[in-house]
Structures are given as structure tokens and as C-alpha cells.
Amino acid sequence: MRENDGKSIIIRRSRGWIPINWRDLYEYRELLYFLTWRDLKVKYKQTLLGAAWAVLQPLFMMFMFTIFFGRMAKVPSDGVPYPIFSYSGLILWTYFAGALSMSSNSLVGGSHLISKIYFPRLLMPTASTLAGLVDYLIALGVMVFLMIWYHFPPSPGLLVLPLVVFCGFLAATGVGLWLSAMNVEYRDIRFVIPFLIQLWLFATPVIYPVTMLPEKYRWLLALNPMSGVIEAHRACILGHKPIDWISLEISFAIILLIFITGLYYFKRMEKTFADVI
């Protein structure tokens, strides 16, 4: 009885809701590892500074914002020195922005794979956001030096950090699922992404504190899931104020919504990828 050995498959046109094929994802788990590993390996090939760029990017942004916002515009920073204030937000933001744009372009960039071989397509945008985590960890290492420099003792909130970073990962992957699948059909997405990221940066309290906004408009920020995540990220690293659990929970709920709908949209579009790409 070969039918029951779990290896038989039936191929037909799929309609409506397509469930996620967990068996397939498990079967291809090593490919996820290799795709992530490839993205990491290739990223800094033939660069002079290599992985140092993972640190230099948020660091340059920190200097830039410290000069223009901290010094010249005198943006407040919750009583924390502006450089460390902005850096603690920027490292997660840099991860989010990078992962989002890599992930959104992953399918179109890997079109030769999609048209020539079968594997669960979900792996492609996911591998891109996973690869970015390594850069994040490197940048986080520099955070340690900055904290020593500015005499910030580690706070107990650090225990929550993995959870917050996971929220960032889920957000990048969720939006990545939406945009990567849309990008296959409408290449306009490629042009939209840089603007989206820039706009999103200013709509998120990365380089300014939430307290800068008038009380009555703060609820608007709650609609932006990254605002709760970035605020929580900063609070658990610097410990300069308690973690705002309510806004983190709201953010998480919105992120989950984006992720699940993204998954749904991705699965619905997946079957046409090879033909349209």
C-alpha cells in the first residue's frame, strides 16, 4: 500500500483557501537554513569592510541624527543622551527596514529559482528576514560599548529583549509576505518600498521620543505597530523608563494580524508565481 506512506501527492488546481503545508515546510527546513546562510554570505562579499557594515549603518545614522536632531533641532530624548537614545532605536529599525526591503524583493530576485524548481515559496521572504537578524546581533554588540561609555547599567528589562526582537522579526516578515507577493505581479512595489521605509521611519519614535507628541495624538502612534516595538526595545535596553506593555500588546496584535493576512495573501498568490514572474 503505497498510498499511506505519506509520500503520495495529488496535484490539481487549487481553489479558495490553501492551507499551509507543514509537512513540506518541515521537509525543506534545511533549505531555509541554506537560503539564510546564502543571503548572509553574499551580502558582504567583495566589500572592503565586510560585516563591519552591520555596525557602520546604524552608527552613521546615529551620528547624523545626533548632529541634526539632537544638537541643531534640540529634539528631546527622555533624559537620555541623544546618541545612545537614537542608537538603541536605530539598531532595531535598521534591522526592520533592511529585512523588509530584502524580503520584499526576495521572490523577484530569485525568479530563476521559482521558475525552475519546487520548494515552499514561503522560505524565500523568511530567509531574508532571518539573515538580517545576524546583522542586528552584531550591531547590538556595539550597544554594549555605548552603554559602558555612557555609564548605563544593564536593566532587568533585557530579559524581554528576545520577545521584542521577535515582534520586529514577525513584523518584517508579515509585511515582507504582503509586499513580496505583490511585487511578483506589480513591479511598482520595488519603487514604493524606499518611500514606504522612509515615511515609516518618521512615523515611528526612533529618533524622537513619544513624549514629543501632544497627548491627544498619541493614539495615532498605536496604529503603527513598529512604534510600540521600538519604544519597548529602547526601554528594555536602557531601562530609563518602564516598558509600556499595553502599547506593546496592541502592536503585537496588529503585527499578528498583518502576518496572518500576509500568509493568507501569499498562499493565495503562490500558485501563479512561476507563471507570472
Binding site: R2, K7, S8, I9, I10, I11, R12, R13, Y118, D275
Partner: peptide
């Protein structure tokens, strides 16, 4: 090889 879907009809593969 499941790269693309058929418009109609069916395939059974055992292996």
C-alpha cells in the same frame, strides 16, 4: 514537479 499548477485535470504521484 509542482512548479506550476494545472488549469484542470489531476496528477497522482506515489514517491
Amino acid at each position: 514537479s509542482r512548479i506550476t499548477e494545472p488549469t484542470s485535470g489531476e496528477v497522482e504521484i506515489h514517491g
